[in-house]
Design a protein around this nucleic acid. Structure first.
Length: 453
RNA sequence: GCGAAUGUAGCUCAGUUGGUUAGAGCGCCAGUUUGUGGUACUGGAUGCCGUCAGUUCGAAUCUGAUCAUUCGCCCCA
């Protein structure tokens, strides 16, 4: 044993699964893909590597620190850190060939060079859907995105027994209008939004102190807190409690706030026809990204609050500004597949309905049987027409070993080709679940397998 | 970028106030059974105790450094 062997451990923040777990993860991914497809979204793919100037066109501050960036020759390149920015480039590049409104999905890996934590990886899957169009896009498309994600998550929850979930919805225009009204902008606005975003995660006391430190104005602070108490009633509009009437008189003169409230009403009213209690208004949802301009939402699993938001997104405008003169707006959202499912799979929280790596394994006993066995294997593959996973092993080992191998792979049937079978032109089929074994003609064997699989 | 914890067999971990030959379970290999897996029983192999230095008659155990991993904070487009 040489001792200077290279450490084979996977890099921190990166994930590898064993075949059994990989099958489960792929099933999950397939559910998402199927759900997106059936809602009318089409698949696209983009390169993992982009020019840095493309990715950083709209990024600010901390973004660059988290990006894997490198040079190759004279090219300044980066790994994509999300799927939205490359999508904006894609739309700009292929503008003339796309049909708008354009609905696409994209399930792929993205990369962030931040410190790994539970459920937070450096390489992970995102499952995005977006709808983009020229000039304008009805607020009903916001509903399309949210309801498609809701349906997809419902399918996932059913598959993996994850329980119930809630989607919290808000509209950035309400806050944007509010801050405009009081001439709060720039860093102060960002800092207040930041604490509003954290409201659900921290205690009321911490929220109060942090808020007053950042707002530095008792009146505005009071209004912010009161704003959370407003009730939005679909069909009726915003209901301002009696005691706050005078405080919020300004709303009627603030176009942005009025518009935000109106949009939120339309969205909620429409979503209510899908589910009465799944969708809730929560003004503390603001999202960190500064490109969001309207509807924003986040999704929480009731049984797994520690995961945070498992799906989020919103309405954006001018995302393609840096790539084209065309005015393109959109709405989109994403499911954090790795963040949600890798910890669940690794902790075995999901029942793995694994049904074996193989359906049929052909076992030739000794090299004299290889030819015949290969023939039989090909016949099975063909006869089953792709619905059956069939393989063969060529190992000059004891028969016992071959059986152990079949068992480890979870094969449902074993087809045995030994000297006797070759001599008599028969094959032996063993059902690995019942242990039952019969020696029959090839045609009969095919029938047996075909019936059961 | 900041803080905390943990590095012992392939994996999960135990290892007493520093004391002879470092353990368990699972897995692996072999046998009971040379054409039959899963279950059971019997036996076996596997370790520079993360790395380097220091204290000591003596270090897996104490000290320092270093590397790695994990958890949390910041951030999360």
């Amino acid at each position: 044993m040489s001792k200077k062997q290279i450490n084979t451990k996977v890099l921190s923040g990166f994930v590898e699964l064993l075949p059994k777990e990989q099958i489960l993860f792929d099933n999950i991914k397939n559910i998402v893909e199927k759900s997106y497809k059936s809602a009318g979204y089409v698949a696209i793919d983009t390169p993992v590597i982009e020019k840095s100037e493309v990715l950083f066109a709209k990024a600010g501050g901390d973004t660059e620190k988290q990006v894997y960036r490198f040079t190759k020759g004279d090219n300044d390149l980066s790994l994509r850190f999300d799927l939205t920015v490359p999508f904006a480039r894609y739309v700009s590049e292929h503008y003339n060939d796309l049909v708008f409104p354009f609905k696409r999905y994209h399930i792929a890996k993205v990369y962030r060079g931040e410190r790994a934590q539970k459920g937070r990886y450096r390489e992970f899957y995102q499952a995005d859907i977006d709808i983009v169009s020229e000039d304008s896009l009805s607020v009903m498309y916001d509903v399309d995105i949210i309801s498609t994600l809701a349906k997809t998550i419902e399918n996932l929850c059913n598959l993996c027994s994850l329980g119930n979930f809630k989607m919290k919805i808000s509209n950035r225009k309400i806050w944007d209008g509010f801050f405009e009204e009081f001439s709060i902008s720039g860093e102060q606005k960002a800092s207040i939004m930041n604490i509003i975003d954290k409201k659900a995660k921290i205690t009321a006391e911490v929220f109060d102190t942090e808020l007053s430190e950042r707002v530095k104005n008792p009146n505005i602070e009071k209004l912010i807190k009161e704003l959370f108490e407003l009730e939005f009633i679909p069909n009726v509009g915003v209901s301002i409690p009696e005691k706050y009437h005078s405080d919020f008189a300004f709303i009627n003169n603030n176009e942005k706030m009025k518009q935000g409230i109106r949009e939120l009403e339309v969205v909620m009213k429409s979503l209510e026809t899908i589910s009465k209690d799944r969708f809730v208004i929560d003004l503390s949802i603001v999202r960190g990204l500064d490109y969001y301009t309207g509807t924003v939402f986040e999704t929480f699993l009731e049984n797994y609050p520690e995961f945070g938001s498992v799906s989020s997104g919103g309405r954006y405008e001018n995302l393609c500004d840096n790539y084209t003169d065309k005015k393109i707006c959109g709405v989109g959202g994403s499911i954090g597949l790795s963040r949600l499912f890798i910890p669940l799979i690794e902790d075995e929280k999901i029942e793995n309905k694994w049904d074996g790596l193989l359906d049929v394994l052909v076992l030739p006993q000794g090299e004299n049987c290889y030819l015949k066995a290969t023939e039989v294997k090909n016949q099975i593959t063909e006869c089953m027409n792709g619905i059956c996973k069939t393989s063969i092993i060529y190992e000059n080992k004891k028969f016992k070993k071959l059986m152990e191998y079949a068992n480890k792979l979870g094969a449902k049937y074993v087809v045995i080709i030994g000297e006797d079978e070759v001599a008599n032109n028969t094959i032996s089929v063993k059902n690995m679940i019942t242990g039952e074994q019969q020696t029959v003609s090839i045609n009969d064997a095919l029938k047996i397998i075909k019936e059961k699989i």
